[in-house]
């Protein structure tokens, strides 16, 4: 894209996009680390995920400040305006994604049973991977202003929803058969729900990216078959 006549405007937009790339990378890493911590019962890694969420929150605050400054001083128009508003909305959503990863990490110490990791834990990593890839792709779509990639993310939301439904059924069955593990399984259920919400949020980001890139809103997709209500 051609440069702005006012170079400082380009610098600010670059900084904005850089911050969002960093934030997305951190959120994605937080999800992955939380899942590894969960699988390996790595309490130190879990604690690190919780601690690093502060940086995600700080980036959100920084982006908000910068967006307000850009709107006030540059009065962005057209695609610039859509970009800047998308940036503001995206950081709000990515901050929530970070919170979900943190919440997963906080539950890691709570699912130990007799010094053994609960068996159904093995259901979660591949679900977590789909969700973190959605986050990755949604933010890549923003960086590249790529509406097709954004659409691909939106379409993947049902994969996470299906995962959630299947994990839900499996866990319920497991709880019936192993009533002593109900409290730990309940935590796993919350973790699955958190991952499902991460998928929803990544989808949201992708929708914002699509609007920013094209000026059109995505046609309403069929949200049927989504996970059970919260």
């Amino acid at each position: 894209m051609a440069e702005h006549t006012i170079k400082a405007f380009d610098d600010e937009i670059d900084r904005l996009r850089g911050l969002i790339a960093e934030m997305g990378g951190r959120a994605e890493a937080a999800i992955e680390s939380a899942m590894i911590a969960l699988q390996r019962q790595d309490l130190a890694l879990a604690a690190q995920v919780v601690a690093e969420d502060k940086r995600i929150d700080a980036i959100e605050a920084e982006v908000e400040k910068l967006v307000i400054q850009v709107i006030a001083l540059r009065a962005p128009m057209a695609n610039d305006l859509r970009d800047v508003i998308a940036a503001l909305k995206i950081v709000g959503v990515v901050e929530r994604i970070g919170d979900y990863a943190k919440n997963i990490a906080k539950r890691v110490p709570l699912i130990m049973v007799n010094q053994r990791t609960l068996e159904p834990v093995s259901l979660l990593p591949s679900m977590g991977q789909v969700a973190s890839e959605m986050v990755h792709d949604a933010l890549n779509a923003f960086a590249a202003r790529d509406p097709d990639l954004a659409v691909a993310v939106v379409e993947r939301d049902t994969v996470v929803d299906d995962f959630y439904n299947s994990v839900f059924r499996t866990l319920v069955t497991y709880m019936v058969e192993n009533p002593k593990t109900i409290s730990e399984c309940a935590h796993l259920l919350f973790i699955a729900k958190n991952i499902e919400r991460i998928g929803d949020h990544a989808t949201n980001v992708a929708e914002m990216v699509y609007y920013a890139a094209t000026g059109q809103t995505l046609p309403d997709r069929d949200r049927g078959g989504a996970a059970a209500e919260e």
Binding site: H4, F9, R74, M77, A78, N79, D80, R82, G215
Partner: peptide, 14 residues
Amino acid sequence: TNPTQERTKDYITG
């Protein structure tokens, strides 16, 4: 918010 022509976009976005 969403001009259709490239020349319009370039002008209004500076």
